[in-house]
Amino acid sequence: MADTKVDSSVEEKPADARAERQAAKLAKEIGAFARAHGGAEAQIAYIGERGSRIVLVGEDGGWGDLVARTDAVARAAVEKSGLTVHEDFDGDFAAKVTTGRYEWSRMAGIQLGGPSNT
């Protein structure tokens, strides 16, 4: 029987290529958000097996988020987009977020018997 070796680098390349494509796609979405909101900043939060959440806060107070499959993909996407990354969603960064009546009614609805999140 012939001795065969599996080149592990061949198996890793598709995953690396997929991660690179996902990071590029996310960077494009991040860039579009930043342009629409006069610039933006980001914070990356690990959310477990589902990956990492990229929270975006625009200069106009608008906010949004994206989810990447891995923390590495999230960090690569934000790096490609050129945004400032905050380690924490601390008071100064959170103060930049503008929330409206809709967000307050949804948040209060859970606590006070108002509209639910469904």
Score class of each variant (00 low, 15 high):
Ala74Ile: 06
Arg106Tyr: 13
Thr99Lys: 02
His86Pro: 00
Asp92Trp: 08
Glu79Trp: 04
Asn117Pro: 05
Val85His: 02
Arg101Asn: 12
Ala76Trp: 01
Gly100Gln: 02
Lys96Asp: 06
Gly62Thr: 07
Ala19Trp: 01
Glu11His: 10
Arg21Asn: 11
Ala17Trp: 04
Ala45Phe: 04
Met107Val: 11
Ile44Ser: 02
Thr118Pro: 07
Lys96Ala: 11
Val85Arg: 05
Leu83Glu: 08
Gly51Lys: 03
Val55Asn: 08
Gly109Thr: 02
Ala27Asn: 00
Gly39Lys: 00
Tyr102Met: 13
Asp90Cys: 06
Ser9Ile: 10
Glu12Met: 12
Val73Pro: 00
Gly100Glu: 06
Ser81Phe: 03
Gly64Cys: 11
Val57Met: 05
Gly62Val: 06
Arg75Pro: 02
Gly82Trp: 05
Asp88His: 13
Arg101Glu: 14
Ala77Phe: 05
Met107Asn: 03
Val97Lys: 02
Glu11Gly: 12
Asp3Thr: 12
Ser8Ile: 15
Tyr46Ser: 15
Gly38Met: 04
Asp3Gln: 14
His86Asp: 04
Ala95Thr: 05
Asn117Ser: 14
Arg69Lys: 09
Gly31Val: 09
Ala77Trp: 01
Ile110Arg: 07
Asp3Pro: 13
Gly114Phe: 06
Val67Tyr: 00
Ser9Ala: 15
Leu83Trp: 02
Asp92Lys: 07
Ala27Glu: 03
Ser116Glu: 10
Gln22Phe: 02
Ala45Tyr: 01
Ala36Pro: 01
Ala76His: 01
Gly82Ser: 09
Leu83Thr: 03
Ile110His: 04
Ala68Val: 08
Arg106Leu: 15
Gly51Leu: 07
Asp60Ala: 05
Ala95Ile: 08
Leu112Asn: 07
Ala76Tyr: 00
Lys25Ile: 11
Gly62Met: 15
